[in-house]
Simulated assay, not measured.
Amino acid sequence: MNTPSLFTDPLIELPDAELKLLPGWIDPATADAWLATLLAETPWEQPQIRVHGRVHPIPRLTAWFGDPEARYRYSGLLQCPLPWTPLLAEIRSRLEEKVGQPLNGVLLNYYRDGQDSMGWHSDDEAELGRNPLIASLNLGGTRRFDLRRKGTGRIQHSLFLEHGSLLVMSGPTQHHWQHQVAKTRTACAPRLNLTFRRVRPHE
Rank of each mutant, 00 (worst) to 15 (best):
E97V: 15
A17N: 02
W44R: 01
S122D: 07
V106P: 02
Q79R: 11
G140Q: 04
P172F: 02
V99N: 11
T62I: 08
L87P: 07
P132K: 05
P172L: 03
V51A: 04
W84A: 06
V199H: 07
D123F: 07
P83I: 00
Q79K: 12
E69M: 13
S158Q: 12
A70Y: 08
R144A: 13
T62R: 03
E90M: 11
R198N: 15
N109C: 02
Y111F: 07
L139E: 11
H56N: 06
L128V: 06
Q79H: 15
H176T: 09
M118T: 00
R185C: 05
D16E: 13
P59I: 08
C188F: 04
L87I: 05
T85K: 03
L22M: 14
G100A: 14
R130A: 14
E90H: 13
T85I: 02
A70W: 07
S165D: 10
T142P: 06
K183F: 02
T85G: 06
I12T: 09
L78N: 01
L194I: 03
L78R: 01
R144I: 12
R92K: 14
Q156C: 11
E96K: 12
L103H: 10
Y72L: 01
W64K: 04
I134P: 02
P83R: 00
L39K: 10
D116Q: 12
L159F: 08
P172R: 06
G105I: 10
P23I: 06
H121L: 06
D123N: 08
D16M: 13
P57F: 06
W64V: 02
T85F: 01
S93H: 15
